[in-house]
Amino acid sequence: MMENIEVNMGDLVVTKNQDKLTTSAVGSCLVITLYDLKFKIGALAHTMLTDRRVSHLKRDALDATSSSARTREGGNERRHEIRDMKYVDAAIDEMIKKMVTQGANKENLEAKLVGGANMFPALKSDIGKENVLAAKKKLKEEGIRLVGESVGGSQGRSVEFSVASGIVTVKIKF
């Protein structure tokens, strides 16, 4: 049965059903979709930041909210590598891992990118641009083809990813 699954900011969903993955009002955030056309497995991540961009102070604040950032071992709190899906790199790793678990072949994967805008053009903000660059770099490292993009500019975008067809539809408001 087909479902419409809304993916929240900082989250990702992998599915092999005939689902539609949607996410709305993407500004400087970056939506990354990965698709295995042969096995009809799709993933959509709504990322916010590259971790390189985050200062130590901000990263500490971000980590404090992430349950996956710390684990207790033998009574000592030990910091682990951040595996938080709001980060571009971590989200791509996680998408590949989950897709392969569900039966996808990494070599089949194709990527599309949507978002990375700067909603306030007068403001010198590079968050969006850096998200796009980080994703392209990571995809290249992983050997995943980038087959489509709607990035940059100063417009918000809403995204719908049909996992049955692999088609990604981008809506802007005017």
């Binding site: 900011m9 709305s24 009002a25 993407v26 500004g27 400087s28 955030c29 916010m48 805008a117 700067n118 909603m119 306030f120 903000s125 968050i127 969006g128 100063s154 417009q155 918000g156 975008r157 809403s158 408001k173």
Partner: peptide, 10 residues
């Protein structure tokens, strides 16, 4: 002048 979510999330 755009979507509320896109503006506020940035």
């Amino acid at each position: 002048f755009d979507m509320f979510g896109a503006i506020v999330s940035q």
